[in-house]
Amino acid sequence: MKIGRIGSAVAQALILTAIGCGFAVAQTVTGPVDGQIGLQPAATEVAEDIVKFHTLLLWIITPITLFVLALLLYVVLRYNRAANPTPRKFTHNVAVEVVWTVVPVLILVFISLFSFPLLFKQEQIPPAQLTIKATGNAWRWDYSYPDQGVDFASLPLSEKDATSQNRPFRMAVDEPMYVPAGVNVRMLVTSNDVIHAFSVPSFGIKEDAMPGKVNETWFNVPKEGTYYGFCQELCGTYHGFMPIEVRVVSQAEFDRWITSKGGELAAATPAAAPAAPETAPAETPAPAGAPGR
């Protein structure tokens, strides 16, 4: 673990310098780091809870696995044919059977004490100051800021552009999604065609983009920086090539960006969550069995 952490710190520092040189805007860059063995660093409170919960689970499942391994090695060494030529014939032991039934139940109850609060935190969406809608298309993401009147498509950078801009290929996009730091963002996710999934691992979010349905999730990122995510539901040929890039910036810079996109700054950000999500436009492709096969 320790070696892994040091390695990760070094790798992250290297990546930061590499990307920092080419891109002054981004303070921190959060995405996959080569050779890492754990979860990505948490950027939101929910993600922090996920990382903590995962660490807790790792401390439960690793000893269990090692315990089973140790038992296996012990019986193989202690009760092999040479060490124990005459097998015993017992087939029952009520005490141990009760123990190995009850103890796992207790462990599971213990896990659920942490699992359910995390789930509630993820699924109960707090009042949001900004609503963004991401629409999956084969194969790109469209973003829309309904309260600001900003709509745009986001396409991955070609290898040439990514290299020349010193940004990560297969992750960087031409038009990133901007959000202000420290603000509750309500994320609406839907699709125009097949199912996609909007995910940013460091935010602890993943929501399927279903045609005909609007799913919602939320995040609040206190720290400015660039965060990368992926489409995580198989959506056809170029499934691997619809990445997500989120720029978390100061409110002032966010406002400037909204203006540059021709949007209007919302007069007063409402404290309460806006009305229930509307039904999606359901612009699925022509009905199945359409001519032209």
Binding site: G35, L39, F169
Partner: peptide
């Protein structure tokens, strides 16, 4: 490890961060 770092399934190609 790849999964914990966020590598999606069913990708024919992936970013350099998953190479090792």
């Amino acid at each position: 490890f790849l999964g914990l770092q966020g590598m999606p399934r069913r990708y024919a190609d992936y970013p350099a961060g998953f190479a090792h």
